[in-house]
Design a protein around this nucleic acid. Sequence first.
RNA 1: GCGUCCAUAGCUCAGCUGGAUAGAGCACUGGUUUGCGGUACCAGCGGUCGGGAGUUCGAAUCUCUCUGGGCGUACCA
Length: 536
Amino acid sequence: MKQRVQSYLHDKLGREVVLEKPRDRSFGHFATPIAFSLAKELRKSPMVIAEELASSFDENNEVFSKVEPLKGYLNFRLSEDFLNEYGSWALNNPAEFGVGENKQKILLEFVSANPTGPLHIGHARGAVYGDTLYRLAKHLGYDITAEYYVNDAGNQIDLLGLSIQLYAQENLLNQDVEYPESYYRGEYLDALARGAVEKFGEDILTNESRQKELALWAKDGVMEIVTKTLADTNIFFDTFVNESSLYDDWDRVMAKMAKNDANAIYEKEDKIWLASEAKGDDNDRVVVREDKRPTYLAGDIVYHNQKFERGYDHYINIWGADHHGYIPRVNAAVEYLGYDSNKLEVLLSQMVSLLKDGEPYKMSKRAGNVILMSDIVEEIGADALRFIFASKKSDTSLEFDVESLKKQDSSNPIFYIQYAHARIKTMISKSDFSEDEIMKSSLKGFDEQADTLLFDALLLPEIIEDAFSSRQVQKLPDYLQSLAASLHKFYYDVRIIGREDEAKLLKLLMVVALSIKTGLSLMGIEAKDRMFKEDE
RNA sequence: GCGUCCAUAGCUCAGCUGGAUAGAGCACUGGUUUGCGGUACCAGCGGUCGGGAGUUCGAAUCUCUCUGGGCGUACCA
């Protein structure tokens, strides 16, 4: 809608026009401060320019019913025909509403938690953020792939094997054991230990030389737990890439970098280094240790090389904020590999803290004392979890109270929005008009309030576009919340059933419902047609 | 120290590439239809946009600086 208005203005005025929301809705649907920016160039006051521009529009053009200058601003009111046509089209083509025509191929990598334990609440944020971006991109037409990078190599996998053994020795075999600082703990070890005995026999729990074997088996079990939790939250991946499968390619990738730039890789102190400092990193980085074991970075270099060789137009990685120092060295490697590091976009998701007894609860990745994502999903539901994480800027640390999301009233935003949708559905089912009859009426002849509601509901496509292109997914829940508020107020102010213009008002509400339903589905939340009280 | 993210109402946060009188929700106070679900609506209270300087017609927004926080600063992942 906005694009159409913008291109119309572009043709009309011969330049790009910035459209914004008017300060006061009674001014019109759109406004532009263009006269201010023209003032200098034309050496006239903004007010005069605005008046001249306004008078250059015809009384009856196809888009606007009114163009009005005010204090240097130019305010536009869309014509009834324009809104009616667009709204009716949306209702007739609900699956097309807000769908874009982007063709870019995007690879989106997110979560990528180590397969050494269940997801915790910190992972949940990146997971929700990534999946919401994914849904938005899909809707906008992008050819996007959701990928999970499984770190199934390196020390943490060895540690998984050791952790299971130690856990089992203490709890299953009743032995005295001493735990190293960094070992993993948690209930999930129990099931893994028992499963291992069943599969391999008891020797697997005590034989140190079988730790690796145990770990490689166990990580698949952990990944099952992880994908189950994600699926419970409506999050799914297209592809999984195992770190362990990449190392065979290391020599070729190293040679590739060396071929592109003779200085990219060098040997010093019996180690192999990446010359990342020359590409903006703080220091050069070790990629192969003295004992020939590659570092984590080596795996990531091979992985990124593989990503680029697979050929996408754009790459997005969602990482925890604690990895931000890692960006320069990966960018350096990408450039040495001969690719454009501008195509790689890293989005950071900041820490999450829950309130517990009034004290901030600090998260730690390795401690046994983590808050599990699956526990929160169980406690407040996937919808509420998704909503809270999608509704805050991902680059700000977030604090939230679990209790407030369990309430069944307007203080709980997800409930408030669902209720708006359910209200509309209830009204339509109560009306004597059939859906066909409602659809045949026109979205015209509304008063100010109804007109504004229609306009707001039709803004969804712009919100989707904006939310994705700015990577600020919280714009969608913000929008849905304010649309729901408008609906509730409208419902309160106007008694619809029994009115003379009942059919077209219901059609208007159908547009609102469509916007809410579409918006929620892009957040991975299903709109409800009915609400039930908790105690029912 | 260096890098990076952040600082807006008592609390949790919006505020789009600078634009009209800085907004929601919660909390608190007071109200509401002889009616479609009161699981709702309205009003009030509440702000030196962390401090300072600069850029310009115009700054919460951009730049610099100071202060205060989170995170990072590994041959861990």
